[in-house]
Design a binder for these strands. Structure first.
Lengths: 339, 339
DNA sequence: GTTAATTTCGAAAACGTTTTCGATGTAAAA
DNA sequence: TTTTACATCGAAAACGTTTTCGAAATTAAC
């Protein structure tokens, strides 16, 4: 009934617990004969080491924590998938927590993970997070921390990101190159660095190409969803009839905008061209298909874990490691919403 | 540098480890004075109990495992969200694994979770799973198991499901009630019970209402994605010009079908009415908006954890508990793809 | 004043593993 | 023979907590 222990194996074999333990782990100071004996008996008794005891002894649990703002999200769920896949490869399990874009929750969850003594933490910070002491706490407690996508530059840890500014620049430039003369921007909320950077990339592209930056052409999406895309597209064609291109932060918003424009009889890309951001799987399916920036979520997840793994390894060897920032390539995917 | 232990508190206070431990847990046989002393010192030293030691001693980790076929999936990600939310409320953390619809992986992951000694397991089984001995193993090892959505009837554990057959019947009947005379069905793969039940509900509704069941009107989706919806819709209008209604397993497939029909100039719902399944968030956004069956993923997640929690509690009290099957209500959401 | 009841404490075992270090015994080298 | 080397084992400490049980100290009862 009760699980088999080293002690039981030792007793039935008439040897010590020490030798059993060492035999199972192929220590050199155990004879081949006893190794066989031990391993065979362990096999037939279906011995499984008590994970709790191993954790206590080795001071690690081969488990990491992951905090993301939202689970039901096409980008983040791809990241999660990448992290889980890579972690499993290396024998690690992943505990997932959701911050709901709330600083308070995020803080609580960091503490929760610390109290559970996860070996490391992966996090994409909430929009509401401006204070980072909880992250510092984690690092001071000697648990490696890696941030991805939504990062805090000020925190001295490894990070994995994309160049939002450059990507937005590329997207906007593509609109310009395809002949757009007046380009609007549906941006994300004011707080997170991502939407700031994407806005800045848009603005720079505009100014670099002899166009006038007009703040009335910038709409702020708070929820970054379909309905906002629809709403702002309707407002845009009403207020600025001469706009012929929109760079939109988020494919979901862009799809909403396309939907509204289709209903209004505005032809895409002839009258208005659209570029989205993130390459959602539906973006290639709608009509017209959406030109967008591919944001490699799965890859980012894998890379994020790899970075954390490096730190875990280094910590085990008691080596200091310098935090590094990895930048993933984004690519412009040209489809039918631009010329 | 090193974390504070009970021992340190005991030594600085000149009392025993026992008393410190009991003081912190408000045992009645510790005086109020020493309780204050201990708690204050623990506070100032920022004492955090060593989770590994607690786990070993109490034989539980307040962690459960979750296995789903796919993380990047609108229904499952909602379930995950519900599970995490409910688990956090009760002080449990969730380790997530993805089976990729593979029996082999699923089996491996069950064993992984068992070796990590999670307190319980939540699972939605893979399409490829026909043998259930790995699940039996879990239950024999005395770790509570609850299945949700994609279940195996034969396994004697608690389950949380919807009545797929009834829901499909309702969906099909709605098509009939709104005047459809010849109704097709895009079903899911042959294996999983869900798509079988939904097919059976469709068939029964057809036969109950004096219509002829025609197997050539049933298309089998293997991948259950947008492209299949598009493809089968195209085939359908080509081969069966008189079909005026389709019940489609999966909103994603349905959206694909709508897209194809729109392109072909087939008007929805005038020429063909469509009912989907699961109420994806995009289904209300497309044109025409999609009539569908709401499948309450978030609620299912919460309920699934609640069931597991009950079993965990019962196990702690060494009570036997009878497995129960909870059925969640589904509702027909009428939109513009049906009359 | 003794006995009984009550309050307060701590020694010690237990959870199951890992690892250090010393103790054997045996074979090879001198 | 003695010395050296090597192979094989096990005792014991350690990881940090929880909990049982008995002992001591204090108070109440008589």
């Amino acid at each position: 009934m009760k699980p088999v222990t080293l002690k039981q194996i030792a007793e039935t074999l008439g040897i010590s617990i020490t030798t059993v333990s060492k035999a199972l782990k192929d220590y050199p100071d155990v004879s081949k004969k006893t190794k066989r004996l031990v391993k065979d008996l362990a096999e037939t008794l279906n011995y499984k080491p008590n994970a709790f005891a191993v954790n206590l002894r080795t001071r690690e649990s081969k488990t990491i924590g992951l905090i993301i703002p939202e689970v039901v999200h096409h980008f983040f769920s791809n990241v999660v998938k990448g992290i889980i896949a890579q972690a499993e490869k290396k024998g690690y399990l992943v505990i997932i927590l959701q911050s709901n874009e709330s600083y308070e929750l995020e803080k609580k969850q960091i503490n929760l993970l610390l109290s559970k003594q996860v070996d490391g933490i992966l996090i994409s910070i909430a929009n509401g997070t401006a204070d980072f002491s909880h992250l510092q706490t984690a690092m001071e407690n000697d648990v490696p921390l890696v941030m991805f996508d939504k990062i805090a530059k000020i925190v001295n840890c490894s990070k994995i990101i994309i160049d939002d500014r450059k990507a937005a620049y590329t997207a906007t430039k593509h609109l310009i190159d395809s002949g757009c003369k007046k380009i609007a921007h549906f941006r994300g909320p004011l707080m997170p660095q991502n939407s700031i950077d994407r806005f800045l990339g848009y603005k720079k592209a505009i100014e670099d190409h002899g166009m006038l930056y007009d703040s009335s052409l910038v709409y702020i999406c708070e929820k970054v969803n379909f309905d906002e895309g629809k709403l702002f597209a309707q407002r845009l064609v009403k207020n600025h009839k001469d706009v012929d291109g929109i760079f939109i932060n988020g494919d979901l918003v862009a799809v909403g905008a396309i939907s509204a424009l289709n209903e209004l009889g505005v032809s895409i890309p002839d009258q208005i061209s659209i570029v989205g951001f993130s390459n959602w799987f539906m973006s290639s399916a709608i009509t017209p298909s959406l030109t967008t920036i591919d944001q490699p979520g799965y890859k980012m997840g894998k890379k994020a874990f790899k970075l954390l793994y490096k730190e875990l390894k280094a910590k085990k060897r008691k080596q200091e490691i310098l935090p590094q920032t990895v930048e993933l390539e984004t690519t412009l995917i040209k489809r039918n919403s631009t010329k």
